[in-house]
């Protein structure tokens, strides 16, 4: 197991390197001159040439790449062209916002998805089963951004129940410590604001949770049906055990593996969906940070932002893979 973990970690190195390489080149392939972007349309030729030199853009690409990788290895993500601030100081609040949103969404997805799947399987072919599975089918087919818009329209613009944008009540902010507002408000002891943060979280996290929720429900249902058909459940049933709880416990255990798979697969969707959700709900997360950087041609931010998301993504996938091996004795690691 340890050997396997080490081998997987070693295998990450070429992937991370290749990723950096790809991002580096994509960014350089984006049309537009960074110096022009910084200095604006009225810039003189001399000023531009000076800045180009200063940014190291006259060096051959491999020298630039070398400097970039060297910087990355020492924790330097570069400087934002727009704000001139080091990206590593600037990025955490955005990252935290996305993290909070994604975690809440994933929690909702797993909680509702697993339970709906189990109940559907238990009452197979009942009205609950049909409704849940039809909803799940619609759920995987719904575009996140449209769902977000409709939620916003119905629950905040028409009914006025929930706020439509932002993370908190901006007129009365609490002191920022971790940038995870659910925690910050608790640290500050501001339970009114804690409730506000939750109210802000509901709509975007529901939108973001829909697809993973639907997939988890479907997978849980089918794996549970398999469990129910298995011999040991039949035996237990023949013994007259209180079946629902027996099966519930067993299938929860059995649902862990498929749910893990989905988490692994959906983290990408979640991070990608975050860009869209964040755009709609004015959520100041990493997705919007990158998206706005593209609009401003803020190359270092695009570059490092994408790299960070991709790194998080593959690390989560690695953890999921390792958990698999740890949990399921049938999966061999070689």
């Amino acid at each position: 197991m340890l050997t396997y973990t080490i081998r997987r970690l070693l295998m990450l190195i070429p992937v991370l390197f290749g990723m950096t390489f790809v991002v580096f080149f994509i960014i350089r392939a984006i049309p537009g001159d960074p110096a022009q972007v910084i200095l604006g349309q009225q810039a003189t030729k001399e000023a531009m040439a000076q800045l180009t030199e200063k940014l190291g853009l006259n060096d051959p690409w491999y020298v630039q790449f070398f400097h970039y990788v060297k910087g990355l290895l020492s924790g330097d993500l570069g400087e934002s062209l727009r704000s001139s601030a080091p990206i590593k100081d600037e990025i955490w609040p955005y990252l935290a916002a996305t993290l909070e949103l994604s975690l809440v969404a994933m929690f909702i997805a797993i909680f509702i998805g697993v339970n709906a799947g189990i109940i559907s399987a238990w009452f197979q072919n009942s009205w609950f089963d049909y409704t849940a599975m039809i909803l799940a089918l619609i759920g995987i087919s719904i575009p996140v951004f449209w769902l977000g818009l409709m939620e916003q329209w119905a629950f905040s613009l028409e009914l006025g129940w929930l706020p439509s944008t932002g993370r908190e009540n901006v007129r009365d902010p609490v002191e920022v410590v971790t940038n995870l507002y659910l925690i910050d408000t608790l640290i500050a002891g501001r339970f009114d604001q804690f409730g506000e943060v939750i109210r802000h979280l509901i709509l975007p996290s529901l939108a973001l949770a829909t697809i993973p929720m639907a997939i988890i429900a479907r997978i849980t249902r089918s794996s549970m049906l398999e469990v129910m058909r298995s011999d040991y459940i039949r035996t237990a049933r023949a013994k007259g055990m209180r079946m629902f709880f027996v099966v519930y416990k067993h299938s929860l255990k059995n649902a862990v593996i498929p749910v893990l798979t989905v988490i692994g697969l959906q983290v990408g969707l979640l991070l990608g969906g975050a860009i869209l959700t964040e755009t709609i709900f004015g959520w100041p997360g990493i997705g919007r940070y990158i998206y706005e950087a593209i609009g401003f041609r803020d190359y270092p931010v695009i570059q490092s932002g994408i790299l960070i998301i991709a790194t998080i993504f593959i690390l989560i996938n690695l953890v999921v893979d390792l958990l698999y091996v740890a949990i399921d004795p049938r999966i061999k690691y070689n």
Binding site: G268, L271, G272, I275, I290, I309, A310
Partner: peptide, 9 residues
């Protein structure tokens, strides 16, 4: 490497 990026990104 390609799959390491969220697809929409």
């Amino acid at each position: 490497i390609m799959l390491a990026f969220p697809s929409i990104l």
